[in-house]
Design a protein around this nucleic acid. Structure first.
Lengths: 222, 222
DNA sequence: TATAGTTTTGACTGTCGGTCATTAATTGAA
DNA sequence: TTCAATTAATGACCGACAGTCAAAACTATA
């Protein structure tokens, strides 16, 4: 369907605001941004922001949605490889790590989004719905890989793929969350004792759960 | 050392404020609390809050510290059991789950604390230092259990216990975080597909990483 | 009881998210 | 081209809230 010039301009404006906000998050951190700052950076009046977004939250949500789309795209490509299911899971893990390293702003916004989870007026938001949909899609990629693995025998089929998928998703978030902060040099005393790279941490994690879900038969072969 | 009445009263006041805030978090949620609300609940003037805490953040930090102390205490007790290292890790996992279920407010505040990790003026705070110290202590319990397990042969010693500890800690946070929100009925589309209990999710997780870090020898025995 | 010292208080301030009356730009009919 | 009608953009303003501080209330001592 063809868009009118007005519609195209409107969308461009909206993207401009999102771009400006992403920049600011990168430069100032998500907690040090005001609507006035965003307006200035995007070179529009403050009121204009509210013509495109319901609230400050909505802008962050829009960024989150953009990020999820990119991540899902990467996941989709990873799943195209001709590999046994177990390897696909590892591939997804590495894809996620790469995404977080290359797009720290999106990772920041994902965390912000998570922190809103008990926010009631969020549930209504159409944007939030789309974020949820994206998360579900990401989840589907994992489950698909698990199912492939159970089919080809590389993954132990004693688990329910959906339940295992959630465990893997949650655990990955947790591990990468921790590794991310270490990398960002955020003060975390826990992490002082060990000298690990984000890479090695994630590798260890992948090996750990990889071994855990491998078929006994297969794991003997290593 | 003996405390004067004044000192005792001062400490009691402080605890009173913390108690009041915990109550409010439970009733209203951490995002719907104002300093005026806390003052009213604690039956003191607003200014008084600032005689005991530098800021609103500090109050939450104090709650976080209290929670960490309780959690560490539970971890300490779990480690006293006469079990092989691998079982100790499982025991720690279940202890953590139980703690979160019984003390949702502390879990909420832990998450709040985590979200402050890139907050610069936090690093100075003496309270934050103590929270960090607590986290490090929790971490030590896990590492200790891993070392025991590598000693008694129940855990594969191909991993570095510190690094594995961080992986386990991060992954556990992630899984329980997810399960917690499911339980709290927070809208999360990802979770709609599956009908799992917090229990079963954590059990699966424990089994997954348990298998992953078990010695090959041992895992054959199951 | 008088007074010096200490603690508590809530009215006040600055900041920020969000609103809305006003202004500017665009469109399209005459 | 002109001008009225419609639509878009703006920033002065508002309410809410974290944090401050001068004054009030309280306590201890002589």
């Amino acid at each position: 369907m063809k868009l009118t010039r007005k519609e195209r301009e409107r969308i461009a404006r909206r993207e401009l605001i999102i771009d400006a906000t992403e920049n600011l998050i990168d430069r100032l951190g998500i907690d040090n941004i005001t609507m006035d700052t965003i307006a200035t950076e995007a070179e529009v009046g403050k009121g204009t922001l509210y013509l495109h977004f319901k609230s400050k939250k909505s802008i962050y949500l829009a960024i989150s949605e953009r990020g999820s789309r990119l991540l899902n795209h990467a996941f989709g490509k990873a799943l195209l490889k001709e590999l046994p299911g177990l390897k696909l899971i590892e591939e997804l893990g590495r894809t996620y790590l790469k995404f977080v390293q290359e797009n720290p702003v999106y990772f920041t916004v994902f965390n912000y989004y998570e922190s809103l989870i008990n926010d009631d007026d969020l549930a209504q938001s159409e944007l939030a719905q789309r974020c949820e949909e994206s998360a579900r899609e990401a989840m589907t990629y994992i489950v698909r890989a698990l199912q492939i693995g159970m089919q080809d025998g590389s993954i132990n089929n004693k688990y329910d793929p959906h339940e295992l998928g959630i465990v893997i998703w949650g655990a990955s978030r947790g591990v990468i969350h921790m590794a991310f902060h270490k990398q960002k040099k955020h003060h975390m005393k826990i992490l002082d004792d060990v000298n690990f790279s984000l890479q090695s941490l994630v590798s260890n994690f992948i090996e750990l759960i990889g071994t855990g879900m491998a078929n006994d038969q297969q794991s003997k072969n290593n």
